[in-house]
């Protein structure tokens, strides 16, 4: 009898453990299934096109824009910057090879105990070679990121949360908590608009689904009139719900990027992109 009770207790503990601490892979599969069921018309691989994957009328307009992509100048500027040697004679290629490295980011650095994004790595490359870091968000750094993303088109999103490093899982969990928490005076969570609300209209704008959200950065956004990085957009979203935004490359936004990118594992990087 006692043995049975003990066995039951172990079973119960294991069951509640897995319910409470579903791993990143369980999260991802549920996330993917949610969106593929919500938008059965959209093939899974097409979610990297954001709103245009679920809204045929705006897709038409977007395809026209893509014929003369507004991000092309940025790729060119990024290429020039890439080819121009640093003062010490070295260059970005000494850090990133041919630049087609988008698929390696973001990653958890177990030695440093932090998340390394591609934009962070670009600045670290500069600083290691005696150059000033660039401003995150827009401008030159977005150009270099655009060039590298362009060189990396078609690479698979493949974020790894090392299982043997509890700090990595904790960072992932913080990103997840951020994504699902309401904040700001208007009291919205990311998931409110881009989960259950995705596909709905806010005035004339249709809300995009979260799956594939991270694939196409940096983005030329017509509303900005220039290029911006993923973290610039995070900041804009936060301010829209009337929360104070965090700085690009802050721990909060890097954790958010880690979580959100993990959710799109298996899809392809297709940056840079163009959006309304």
């Amino acid at each position: 009898m006692k043995k049975h009770v003990a066995a039951l207790m172990v079973l119960f503990a294991a069951a509640s453990w897995s319910m409470l601490f579903a791993g990143p892979e369980d999260d991802r599969m549920a996330f993917e299934k949610y969106f593929t069921s919500k938008f059965p018309e959209t093939p899974k691989h097409d979610f990297i096109n954001g709103i245009y994957s679920i809204d045929p009328p705006s897709r038409e307009q977007w395809l026209e824009i893509e014929e003369f992509p507004p991000y092309e100048l940025s790729i060119d500027a990024g290429r020039s910057a890439w080819e121009k040697p640093f003062a010490n004679g070295k260059g970005y290629a000494d850090c990133f090879g041919d630049g087609a490295v988008r698929g390696q980011y973001p990653y958890w650095d177990s030695g440093r105990k932090e998340i390394i994004t591609m934009e962070l790595a670009i600045n670290e490359c500069r600083e290691a070679n005696g150059e000033e870091p660039l401003k995150y968000g827009k401008g030159k750094l977005a150009d270099i990121s655009a060039y590298m993303s362009f060189m990396s088109r078609g690479q698979k999103i493949n974020v790894i949360i090392p299982e043997d490093d509890p700090d990595a899982l904790a960072a992932y969990e913080r990103g997840k908590q951020f994504y699902y928490s309401k904040r700001g005076q208007l009291n919205f969570a990311c998931i409110d608009c881009h989960g259950s609300g995705s596909g709905n209209l806010v005035r004339a704008d249709r809300l995009s689904p979260a799956l594939g959200h991270v694939s196409h950065w940096p983005v030329y956004r017509s509303k900005w009139g220039n290029m911006g990085t993923l973290h610039r957009r995070f900041g804009g979203c936060n301010r829209q719900v009337r929360a104070a935004s965090f700085k690009p490359q802050s721990p909060q936004y890097r954790e958010l990027e880690l979580f959100l990118t993990y959710m799109s594992n298996g899809l392809e990087y297709n940056g840079p992109g163009a959006r309304k």
């Binding site: 579903a22 369980d26 999260d27 549920a30 949610y34 699902y180 969570a189």
Partner: peptide, 9 residues
């Protein structure tokens, strides 16, 4: 206390 019950499972 609320966020975790919003997680897509």
């Amino acid at each position: 206390h609320l966020w975790s019950s919003r997680v897509i499972r």
